[in-house]
Nucleic acid binder design. Structure first.
Lengths: 216, 216
DNA sequence: CGCCCTGTTGACAAAGGTCAACTAGCGTGG
DNA sequence: CCACGCTAGTTGACCTTTGTCAACAGGGCG
């Protein structure tokens, strides 16, 4: 499952969008490739939602500005996920999205997507729209707050590190719903046990079994 | 927006599902009404996902069993939302769902839904399925942990109380990502300021303006 | 070479979790 | 109909965890 989520989509024939567009039987996919460098912007919260993307390769971090004006990362998206899909039900982007590593996204204009999705009142579109509406209305849920910081960090490392091996500490801390200081301390403890290696730049699992003990 | 979410769906002509099924032009909706009493089960995590529901009236609380075996409520769903939609992409229910008040749900069997949604490879279905897959994979995010307990409670009361006026304290506490004790203390403080009235049974906003001050 | 940014470490304070005792409300059974 | 006992909720005392503030350090870049 975790592997599935990480696996890049390398061809249109292997891409859900490509297949739905019928590229395997001579169709043409309405999505076009766009590349993003590390930390490059994909879309900006509040801007008119002109384009919707599907991630083919890489990872994108979604963030939303909180009440105090700060921008809080709250979710990571990988290959197969859409970015900006809320365009189907509302006019502006709900989140700011940024690539965490060199990424390939397939973009489609809102209007083209609208056309491509088929008639507005169809059952599958209705279900999609209701689902999107529900998630857009739902307040942002910062992070999985469950158990002490060390465990949360360990779990994230096990589940998600390969998706985003080079996230900034401040971003990771926000994703985990803690401060950079607390994250730093948690990493230090995990390092002491020999489960991971971490320099300022590096962050790697060296003893997966030991790390798994920490989450139990 | 908050009002929208609370408004019950009183007729098939006003129901997204009914409209998609074309009841306004003589069509027949494949969903059928089912009632649930307060606290009655809708579906059980891990069971084969035989039926999918759309909420027409009332509120449903979703919960998932945590690593330690306890069952943790994590989300509230209201009219227009689906329950058990993960059936489209996986065989078992991801969450346990329970009505928090007398509710009306429209149910459809998984197979009928599959048929009703139209051809499996269509664009809108693909987008729906990818969206569902992403949310199913995503770990549960307990609650909006943002600011001190009193503020979180105040915000919830303002935004959601009308959706679920009679939730149990333990459930509400879990939704807010805190213990029942902390919730109780927060309610006590809000009561002292005169913003709300709360007995063991009752929970009501008496001074909305004052409550809004508390979240700022 | 030095500056700047990001991350790390330390000391302290405060919020919230935990454990325990207590109470209100409700259903049950005599 | 009343007493009893159960469960959910409340309140208090204490303690752990995490956030906050501040000082410091490594690495990259001008």
């Amino acid at each position: 499952m975790a592997i599935q989520r990480t696996a890049p989509i390398t061809s249109c024939a292997a891409c859900p969008a490509g297949r739905a567009a019928g590229v395997t039987s001579g169709g043409r996919c309405p999505f076009v490739d766009r590349r993003r460098r590390r930390d490059e912007l994909v879309c900006l919260q509040g801007e008119p939602a002109a384009t919707v993307w599907m991630i083919k390769r890489g990872t994108v971090v979604l963030s939303r500005t909180a009440a105090d004006g700060t921008d809080r990362p709250h979710q990571l998206r990988g290959p197969g996920s859409f970015v900006g899909l809320e365009a189907v039900v509302q006019g502006t982007y709900a989140d700011t999205a940024r690539a965490t590593e060199p990424s390939v996204l397939c973009g489609i204009s809102r209007l083209d997507l609208d056309r491509w999705l088929g008639p507005a009142g169809s059952p599958s579109r209705m279900v999609l729209e209701q689902t999107l509406r529900a998630t857009v209305d739902e307040p942002v849920r910062p992070a999985g707050v469950d158990g002490p910081a060390v465990q949360r960090v360990a779990r994230w490392l096990l589940d998600e590190l390969e998706r985003a091996p080079r996230v900034q500490r401040r971003v990771l801390a926000a994703l985990l719903g803690m401060t950079p200081e607390t994250l730093s301390r948690a990493l230090a403890r995990l390092g002491e046990t020999g489960a991971i290696e971490h320099g300022r730049q590096r962050l790697a699992i060296v003893d997966r079994a030991r790390l798994e003990q920490m989450v139990a």
